[in-house]
């Protein structure tokens, strides 16, 4: 898109996009570190991850100030208006991603013992890989203003949901096998749920990117595969 007559307006919009990119990168590392702390039971890394989340909160605050300022001073319209609205919502989602990762990191400290099963660790790593892939793809779609890529991210969320459902079943089995596993498995279940929620935030971001680029909302009928609500324990 061509430049605004008032060039400082362009600079302000660019600064907001820059903040979103920084938040995105930070959110990704926070998730990676939290899960790697979980899998390796690295308490040091877990504590560092909890601290890292604070920076995301700060960035969210900075973006909010910038957005309010730009609305008050420029009265954005059309594509600019959609960009501003999207930035507000996306930054909120990214901040939530940070919170979810922090929660995983806190559970590492709570568990404070080696994981009972290598297989479980692999399961959590796998869902994390998928969720992080979603996050990365949607952030790329945001930077490139690519509506089609955003739409694909939303489609792919069902895979994250499916993995979560199977992890849920697996954890139930472990708990039934030996009640001494219950504490650890319950923590792991929450971790998996957090990661699955990160996938949902990637989906939210995808919907906002799609709207930002096209001005249209994606249709509502998205396939739902999370069946944990109907599993009989």
């Amino acid at each position: 898109m061509s430049e605004h007559t008032v060039s400082s307006y362009d600079e302000e919009l660019t600064a907001i996009a820059g903040c979103i990119a920084e938040m995105g990168g930070l959110a990704e590392t926070t998730v990676t570190n939290a899960v790697s702390a979980l899998v390796t039971q690295d308490l040091e890394l877990a504590r560092a991850t909890i601290k890292q989340d604070g920076r995301l909160d700060e960035l969210l605050g900075e973006i909010e100030v910038k957005l309010v300022e730009i609305i008050a001073r420029r009265q954005p319209m059309g594509g600019d208006l959609r960009e501003i609205m999207a930035a507000g919502r996306i930054s909120n989602d990214l901040e939530r991603v940070g919170d979810l990762a922090k929660n995983v990191a806190k559970r590492v400290i709570a568990i404070d013992s080696d994981l009972k099963s290598k297989k479980l660790a692999i399961g959590v790593e796998h869902i994390t890989e998928l969720a992080l892939g979603q996050l990365k793809n949607v952030l790329d779609a945001y930077t490139k203003q690519d509506a089609e890529a955003a739409r694909q991210v939303r489609e792919a969320d069902s895979e994250v949901d499916a993995i979560y459902t199977s992890l849920f079943r697996e954890l139930l089995t472990y708990m039934m096998e030996d009640p001494r596993n219950i504490t650890q498995c319950a923590h792991l279940l929450f971790c998996a749920k957090n990661i699955e929620r990160i996938g949902d935030h990637a989906t939210n971001i995808a919907e906002n990117v799609y709207y930002m680029v096209t001005g249209e909302r994606l249709p509502e009928d998205r396939p739902k595969v999370d069946e944990t609500g109907v599993v009989n324990a």
Binding site: M1, H4, T5, R74, M77, G78
Partner: peptide
């Protein structure tokens, strides 16, 4: 229209 309402020319 987009260019005008967003202040890109005019």
């Amino acid at each position: 229209t987009q260019d005008y309402i967003t202040g890109r020319f005019g």
